[in-house]
Amino acid sequence: MIVEGPVLKYGDKIDTDVIIPAKYLKSTDPAFLAQHAMEPIDPQFYQRASKGVILVAGKVFGMGSSREQAAIALKAAGVRAVLAESFARIFYRNAVNNGLPVITVPGISREASEGQIARVIVESGEVRIGERTLKGKGITGMALKILESGGIMEYLAKVS
């Protein structure tokens, strides 16, 4: 699986209260959630992401609340993959369960700049940005099976 797009860049410790505030959690509608993604720190995010982007971030991206709407909102807003120095465990699983590729890439927040085109091989974790190639932690094993099935429930339906 290969995904590609311009980089949108954020810092360390982007939490799920920032990705989608609690007041929107009474809905699971992707189109609605997308409009409010990242609202507290970037009210223009929805416009900026709409053409399809690769989100780059620092440490423990998605920390905090377990709200699965965080992954749903980003994906629906146009995020094709998230590349981060590290991910919070719950967000990582939520992303995989919703078909949003998430790759841990050490050094990514230093190497990538806003607007550059990033090309990501999801299975191997290889990331091409401009002239450089970075080696991330690809999605493998159980997580890959789930991602390829389109989600955990789809995976369960397939294997049971």
């Binding site: 699983r93 939520n94 369960n97 989600g151 955990i152």
Partner: peptide, 18 residues
């Protein structure tokens, strides 16, 4: 451990997780 809605749905149905 906390998990998202999909993981918990799977656990509610199967009593298992990974």
């Amino acid at each position: 451990q906390g998990m998202g809605a999909s993981d918990i749905a799977a656990a509610v149905v199967t009593g298992r997780t990974w």
